[in-house]
Design a binder for these strands. Structure first.
Ligand SMILES: [Mn+2]
Ligand SMILES: [Mn+2]
Ligand SMILES: [Zn+2]
Ligand SMILES: [Zn+2]
Lengths: 144, 144
DNA sequence: GATGTAATTGAGAATCAATTACAATAATAC
DNA sequence: GTATTATTGTAATTGATTCTCAATTACATC
């Protein structure tokens, strides 16, 4: 399996885009984040490391990472986008606590089959799906 | 089954809120919309009927309708919220075309079972789920 | 290693959905 | 009717994201 930075560099070259320290700093930081993140968090983490990368550049870089399969958008329906490092990770769904925001991951194998079924029934070329389940974790149930 | 307006009026009374013509106009209009809608569309439709309800009031009323189970938020991940009339409708998921925005509905019965399973495994009290599938419809595939 | 080019950057302005402050109005309880 | 207090419309505000623009920089070519 190619290293992630290698995947990104090949993608950049293939598109006649440019390899910049900003983009690689951002990507490097994403590799070091365990779990989900948003633009603000990523920006703060870079700031903490004395990187001067601007938010605008982060916003501009993320679509590239997504396009080459290193990052995935995660929608927690809370008003802004979240992201996760996805290269080499299994596809999974999220169970989110409405109280404290905790996010657990689980796999739901049946959905591949559902995609095939929908493709056939409606004539769609399916690109993907998102399943999120929400509720209250044990701790937040007590607090209610 | 109680009528929807009745559900709303009981909810309003129970909370010591006030029954206003604006809220009932908005609700009435929602009943007449077939399918999904957003705030802007709802506002325009009310305008067309010479109603002077403001957008702010729509934004303030929707959470009430959601809270009493008449309306559901629908997340198409396109930058703003959509809604649908939900009272008496079966729960369903959405298949959306990334090209033209068409939305089809389908049922996926296995997810009730999944909720029970997750509740048990992680100790959550599950409140609901959202499944969206996206891809390209037959027409948009050709156009590519 | 200079040079031309076109992509990229940071700063700040613009956008857009959604929320909020405020003063005027109106629904309910008495 | 009167008092109370929720609700309204307007306009201002917020916050995430995108855009603009001038300055910088990566990369191909000489
Ligand atoms: Mn995840
Ligand atoms: Mn629907
Ligand atoms: Zn919790
Ligand atoms: Zn389409």
């Amino acid at each position: 399996m190619k290293s992630e930075i290698q995947v990104f560099r090949e993608y950049i070259r293939g598109r006649r885009l440019r390899r910049t320290p900003e983009r690689e700093q951002i990507l490097q930081e994403i590799f070091e984040i365990h779990g989900h993140f948003d633009v603000d968090e990523l920006h703060l983490r870079l700031r903490d490391k004395a990187s001067k990368v601007s938010k605008a550049s982060i916003y501009r870089a993320l679509p590239l990472f997504i396009d080459c399969g290193l990052v995935r958008e995660v929608d927690f329906s809370d008003g802004h986008w979240h992201y996760e490092h996805v290269y080499g990770h299994a596809h999974h769904s999220h169970l989110r606590c409405l109280g404290c925001g905790e996010v657990l991951e689980f796999e739901q194998p049946g959905l591949g089959c559902l995609e095939a079924h929908l493709a056939q029934e409606f004539g769609y070329r399916i690109k993907g799906h998102q399943l999120q389940v929400h509720g209250f974790c044990a701790t937040c149930q007590e607090a209610e």
